[in-house]
Every structure is written in structure tokens, then in C-alpha cells.
């Protein structure tokens, strides 16, 4: 138990430092690196929680696919160094203050609530907890309805993405029809 707690504190510290680094980095590539280390550390936290499948999904989807997209966008736009002028004078310090205040409040509330594990939760998880098989079983039994709603949500988002980008392309096509020599 104590090893787990020590490991959790160390990993959580890394995750927080990486998240802050992401926000503070002036260079987009550094920000991306901070993000990927945050994803990686969170994946390890999932393993600590006894959810290895979730950890693997976190690595492949977030640290893999999504990060590659980010890096490609940064590369293609050549946006490593963003022209950065700080218009926000008060907001920065205020954000720190409020963020730390919230963190303190939540911590205080959690400690003062005198947490005890709910009675119905078993102390030890079963052997196949968090395995792909059991997650799949849950997804198609207890969570089948939310599962279907996710697919619908993705469909709506996809239609939206197509609509919002198509408009621009149409406009461009029309422009190049009008001035064929320019394109």
C-alpha cells in the first residue's frame, strides 16, 4: 500500500509539472512534449488503479494517434515559435491565485470529509477487473445505451466538422473559378 502511495505521489507530481509546463512553454514543440509526458504518466496511474487496458488505450490513442496529429499540425503550420504578446496582465496571476485556491479548497474539503470506502465496494478487485473482456462485457450490457449515444455524438460532431470546413472549400473553389490564372 505505501509503495503505491509513494508511486502515486511521485507520478502525480510529474503529471502536474508536465501540465504546467504545457501551459507555460513558449515553443509549441516543447508544449507537445509536455503533453505527451502528461499522457504517459496518466497511463501509469491507470495501471496503478488496476486498469491496464485503459492505460494501453491511453497510450495508443492519446500519446499515439492524437499526439502525432498535434505534431503534424505544428510541423505543417511551422508554428514552433508563435509570435507571443502577453495581452493578459491581470488574468495570469489571478488565474494562478484562483487555481491554487480551488486546489486548496478541494483538498481541504476532501480531508475534512473523513473519507471512508463505501461499504459495497470490495476491498480487493477481481482478477479480470479492467481486462478488455470485462470492459467489453460492461460496454454491451450495463453501458450499452451510453455506448450508443457516444456513436451518435460522434456522428453529429462529424457532420458538424464536414459542414464547417466544406463552406470554406466551396468558397475557395468558387474564387479559383473566377480567377483561373491566379490559382
Amino acid at each position: 500500500m505505501t509503495v503505491q502511495v509513494a508511486l502515486f505521489i511521485a507520478l502525480a507530481a510529474v503529471a502536474i509539472v508536465a501540465a504546467i509546463g504545457l501551459l507555460r512553454a513558449k515553443n509549441a514543440v516543447y508544449a507537445a512534449l509536455c503533453l505527451v509526458s502528461n499522457f504517459g504518466v496518466v497511463a501509469v496511474l491507470y495501471i496503478l488503479l488496476g486498469a491496464p487496458f485503459l492505460a494501453m488505450v491511453q497510450i495508443t490513442v492519446y500519446a499515439g494517434a492524437i499526439m502525432v496529429l498535434f505534431v503534424f499540425v505544428i510541423m505543417l503550420l511551422g508554428a514552433e515559435h508563435l509570435e507571443h504578446e502577453d495581452h493578459l496582465l491581470l488574468q495570469g496571476p489571478l488565474g494562478w491565485l484562483l487555481g491554487l485556491g480551488l486546489a486548496g479548497l478541494v483538498t481541504f474539503a476532501a480531508i475534512s470529509a473523513n473519507l471512508s470506502a463505501p461499504a459495497e465496494l470490495p476491498a480487493e478487485v477481481s482478477a479480470n477487473f479492467g481486462s478488455p473482456g470485462s470492459i467489453g462485457h460492461l460496454l454491451l450490457t450495463e453501458y450499452v445505451f451510453p455506448f450508443e449515444v457516444i456513436s451518435f455524438l460522434l456522428l453529429a460532431a462529424m457532420v458538424g466538422a464536414v459542414v464547417l470546413t466544406l463552406v470554406q472549400r466551396e468558397k475557395k473553389a468558387r474564387r479559383s473559378l473566377r480567377n483561373p490564372q491566379q490559382s
Binding site: 453501458y143 445505451f145 451510453p146 449515444v149 457516444i150 451518435f152 455524438l153 453529429a156 460532431a157 457532420v159 458538424g160 459542414v163 464547417l164 463552406v167 470554406q168 468558397k171
Partner: peptide
Amino acid sequence: DLIMLYLALETTSISAYILAGFLFN
């Protein structure tokens, strides 16, 4: 259920963002 509620909220919100920005030009 919290999971269902969050998904429903996001379905509404994401559709609403698209609608608000529909006239992208």
C-alpha cells in the same frame, strides 16, 4: 447517471456550437 448525463450534455453542446458557428463565412 453521471456518465449518461455528461454524454447527453456534450451531444447538446457540440451540436449547439456547430449551429452557432454555422455561417462560418
